[in-house]
């Protein structure tokens, strides 16, 4: 058991236990904190695979931006454990059965799959930023640019939907309120 393996197991146990915390905790804020911990553990795995760029982008984008917005929404809606809707037994059983079937399908698919070309741990430089940039901008430049246009259009679309339409039936503003 070398240092790599010890770190791997610590991170794996951390990731799985905090992921369980996300779905098992009743308080939404605790779930968000557990999810952040999960992202950190996964970033640790990326670092072990020598994909430092991926690790830090995972933290910036998911832990730093998306989770802050999640926390934001939960705080504003003031969700608490006691206002969580209680689902009926029927829905719970349906959830268990469909989840079990999905698990079975994934298990069956994974059993027959074969992994070709295992990544050499920590000796390759695929995940370093120079190689990643060269790959993205030489081999995959068209899909990369198209996906960025897609993101831009999604952003503009959200703005268009969120924009208030000017309506005429608003009560008249008082003069000191502009």
């Amino acid at each position: 058991m070398d240092l790599f393996e010890i770190l791997f197991w610590i991170l794996t146990i951390g990731a799985i236990s905090s992921a369980l915390g996300v779905i098992l905790s009743r308080n939404p804020i605790n779930s968000v904190i557990c999810l952040i911990a999960t992202f950190f553990a996964i970033s640790g795995h990326y670092v072990l695979l020598n994909a430092q760029f991926l690790a830090v982008v995972n933290i910036i984008v998911y832990a730093g931006a998306i989770m802050v917005l999640f926390l934001f929404v939960i705080m504003l809606m003031n969700l608490n454990a006691d206002v969580e809707p209680q689902k009926s037994r029927l829905v719970q059983f349906a959830g268990i059965i469909s989840g079990g079937i999905l698990f079975l399908v994934i298990l069956a698919a994974l059993r027959d799959s074969k992994i070709n070309g295992v990544l050499e741990k920590s000796s390759n430089s695929v995940g370093l930023i120079e190689n990643l940039g060269k790959t993205l901008f030489q081999n995959y430049v068209l899909p990369f640019e198209i996906s960025s246009v897609l993101f831009l259009s999604a952003m503009i679309g959200a703005m268009v939907i969120g924009k208030k339409e000017p309506s005429n039936d608003l009560p008249e503003r008082s003069p000191n309120q502009n």
């Binding site: 830090v56 730093g64 802050v68």
Partner: peptide, 25 residues
């Protein structure tokens, strides 16, 4: 000396707000 130094700064800066948010909430 990590080769993603500046991105690391971004990552930590974007995490800095959690202390304030969690404490305030």
């Amino acid at each position: 000396d990590i080769n993603i130094g500046i991105l690391f700064i971004f990552g930590v800066v974007s995490l800095g707000v959690y202390g304030i948010m969690l404490g305030g909430w």
